[in-house]
Structures are given as structure tokens and as C-alpha cells.
């Protein structure tokens, strides 16, 4: 039987999450409202899954993840949090979190998240506030390029050599060459000399 621990310092949310997880047919063996208690319970009871809040008294969900990693505990951690922030997610991922769900989307996402994590995969909320570049016009091949690549191709269209581009953007000439190769690959340009320059002159205003 899969065992769960849930930790959240907001009693209403804790009860709500426990009721929700139990309604999915799982067994919640432990609940607590403090990060330190959660750590001790995970170390002693070794539940399969721990659903943790991030901001908690004692230690936070992120510090807890770090401690579990050091102790090489096999419990899989799902963070259920109010923080819709890419920086927090990146840190959580770095520390080995398997799932990241926002509290306001518990009913829509937690069930899928648990299933994914149980099957050995990871889950990230689809509502995570990830920064994406503004969308360009449709069918414009330049849209698939990253910000750095778009900036560089603009400078190629201004007929600037790689060395000058590198100097202007504070990057190495080698990095410019890597970007050029990636642009050529993404735009599926022929491998002829000056193919990129010709494309840039024609397509970049």
C-alpha cells in the first residue's frame, strides 16, 4: 500500500489536502504542521510520498528537500505551494522535488501529479508562471529562435562580423559561432557560404 505524509502549517489546507488524497483511494499515514516534524517523520516512517508546503515553521520545504537528499531518503516529494515562481521551481528541481503543484489547483492537478510521480516520472504544474517570449507572427521561421539568436541574426543583417558581434554583446566569438550554427540548423538553411547572411538580409528588417 502506498503511504503518504502531508505537511502544511495551514490547518484548513492540510485537512483539505488529506481529504482529497484519501478520496483518491490512498492512505495518508501522517500529517503535521511543521517542517522539522515532517523531516523526523519522513526519516523514521519513510512514506512513499511526502506532499509538502514550502513556507513552514521549523524548516521550509526546500530545506527539507536538501536534508532528504543528504540522507539519501527514497521518499518522493511533491511540493504543494502558494509560490508560482520559476526561480523557486528551478531550486526545487535542483534539490530533487518530483512534483510541483500550486495550492489553488489542487483539485485539478494533484491527482495527475501523484500518478505521474508514482510511476517514476516528474510533474510540473501547467499553470507555473514560466516566462515565455512574446509570440511573433504565424508561419515566420524566425519565431523558433531564442532571444539571443534573434539578437544575433539582427546584427548579421547589419552585416557585422562575428568578432564585432561578440564584442558588442560581451560574449566570446566561439559563442557567436555556436549561435550561428544553431540558427542555420533551426532555419534549415543550406550549408553554402553566406547562406545565413543572405537569409538575414532578405528576412530581417
Amino acid at each position: 500500500m502506498t503511504t503518504f505524509l502531508i505537511a502544511d502549517d495551514h490547518p484548513f489546507i492540510l485537512i483539505g489536502t488529506k481529504t482529497f488524497v484519501e478520496s483518491l483511494g490512498y492512505h495518508v499515514s501522517e500529517t503535521c504542521t511543521n517542517g522539522l516534524t515532517a523531516l523526523n517523520l519522513i526519516l523514521s516512517k519513510k512514506p512513499d510520498i511526502a506532499i509538502l508546503d514550502i513556507s513552514m515553521p521549523g524548516i521550509s520545504g526546500l530545506e527539507l528537500l536538501e536534508r532528504l537528499r543528504k540522507e539519501q531518503v527514497t521518499t518522493k516529494v511533491i511540493l504543494l505551494t502558494m509560490h508560482n515562481e520559476m526561480s523557486v521551481f528551478i531550486k526545487a528541481k535542483e534539490l530533487g522535488a518530483k512534483g510541483y503543484v500550486l495550492k489553488e489547483n489542487t483539485t485539478e492537478e494533484l491527482s495527475d501529479c501523484i500518478q505521474q510521480v508514482l510511476s517514476g516520472k516528474t510533474y510540473v504544474s501547467s499553470r507555473l508562471n514560466a516566462y515565455t517570449s512574446p509570440e511573433g507572427e504565424e508561419n515566420n521561421p524566425g519565431d523558433t529562435l531564442t532571444f539571443a539568436e534573434r539578437k544575433i541574426i539582427k546584427m548579421i543583417a547589419e552585416q557585422r562580423p562575428s568578432a564585432e558581434i561578440a564584442e558588442m554583446l560581451f560574449i566570446s566569438e566561439r559563442t557567436v559561432e555556436v549561435h550561428r550554427r544553431n540558427i542555420i540548423r533551426k532555419l534549415q538553411l543550406p550549408k553554402e557560404k553566406n547562406a545565413l547572411l543572405i537569409w538575414a538580409l532578405k528576412n530581417i528588417k
Binding site: I54, S55, S60, L62, E63, H83, E85, M86, S87, V88, I90, K91, Y131, S133, P134, F147, A148, K151, L169, F170, I171
Partner: peptide, 29 residues
């Protein structure tokens, strides 16, 4: 910056500059 103490200086800076690049057409490394 959200959870600055735990997320750390590096990730916080890197995430802060992401939207600025596009919005202000400024190449930030």
C-alpha cells in the same frame, strides 16, 4: 524576490533578467 534566502542569489538574478531582455531588447549575459 520570492524566497530569496532559499533560492539564492544566482537563480534569483537569472530569473529576474529573463523578461527584461525581450521587453527592452537588451542582451543580458
Amino acid at each position: 524576490p520570492v524566497l530569496f534566502e532559499e533560492v539564492g542569489l544566482k537563480i534569483s538574478i537569472e530569473q529576474f533578467i529573463q523578461p527584461l531582455q525581450d521587453k527592452h531588447d537588451l542582451f543580458i549575459t
